[in-house]
Simulated scan of single mutants.
Amino acid sequence: MSRIRNTSFYKDKRWVSRRLKMLKADGYECQNCKRFYKTKEAKVVHHIYFYEDYPMLGLLKWNLVSLCNECHNRMHDRINDRATKLGIEWQEKRAEEFELYFKNK
């Protein structure tokens, strides 16, 4: 699969709006830290299935999660641009929604 690098997406008003709504809905709390009963401010909205691989999922709520910077960096292997073990764990949590999306297309 070829990866799409579209930095203009992150400036689009639809993304800006969705990002703010996600952060607000999650109470500006990192959802990964919250799993471990920690409270940390979320500043990033992460695409569970990476936008570069699945741009059509870019605005879908089930594919987004609010994270602190530290947890966001733990989702990506920045060297080979792939999901880490933690990133794959979150993808497995959303596998049913992922499969349903493509089954209905």
Rank of each mutant, 00 (worst) to 15 (best):
M1Y: 13
M1C: 08
M1A: 14
S2N: 14
I4C: 03
R5C: 01
T7Q: 11
T7D: 11
T7G: 12
S8K: 08
Y10A: 05
K11P: 02
D12A: 10
D12Y: 08
K13Q: 12
K13D: 09
K13P: 00
K13F: 00
V16P: 00
S17C: 09
R19G: 03
R19S: 07
R19I: 04
L20Q: 14
L20G: 05
M22V: 15
M22C: 15
L23G: 02
L23K: 05
L23H: 01
K24G: 04
K24N: 11
D26R: 08
D26F: 06
G27I: 04
Y28F: 15
Y28E: 02
E29D: 08
E29Q: 14
C30M: 08
C30W: 05
Q31L: 04
C33F: 04
K34G: 01
K34E: 05
F36A: 07
F36T: 00
F36L: 09
K38I: 14
K38F: 12
T39D: 09
T39V: 14
K40W: 10
E41N: 10
A42C: 07
K43Y: 13
K43N: 14
K43E: 12
V44P: 09
V45I: 06
V45G: 03
V45Q: 02
H46A: 06
I48M: 06
I48Y: 02
Y49H: 12
F50I: 06
Y51D: 00
E52K: 13
E52N: 13
E52L: 01
E52H: 10
D53N: 15
Y54I: 04
Y54L: 00
P55W: 02
M56F: 05
L57E: 07
G58H: 04
G58E: 01
L60T: 00
N63Y: 02
N63G: 07
L64H: 04
L64A: 01
V65I: 15
V65K: 10
V65C: 07
S66H: 03
L67D: 04
L67M: 03
L67E: 02
C68M: 09
C68I: 04
N69G: 10
N69I: 00
E70I: 11
E70C: 10
E70W: 13
C71G: 06
C71P: 02
N73K: 15
N73M: 09
N73C: 10
R74S: 14
R74H: 10
R74C: 07
M75C: 12
H76Q: 11
H76P: 07
D77V: 04
D77I: 06
I79W: 08
I79K: 14
I79H: 10
R82Y: 13
A83T: 13
A83Q: 05
T84L: 03
T84V: 08
L86I: 09
G87T: 05
G87Y: 06
E89G: 09
Q91Y: 08
E92A: 02
R94A: 12
R94I: 03
A95K: 15
A95D: 10
A95E: 13
A95S: 10
A95V: 07
A95R: 14
E96R: 11
E96G: 06
F98V: 00
E99G: 00
L100P: 00
Y101K: 08
F102K: 12
F102R: 11
K103A: 12
K103V: 00
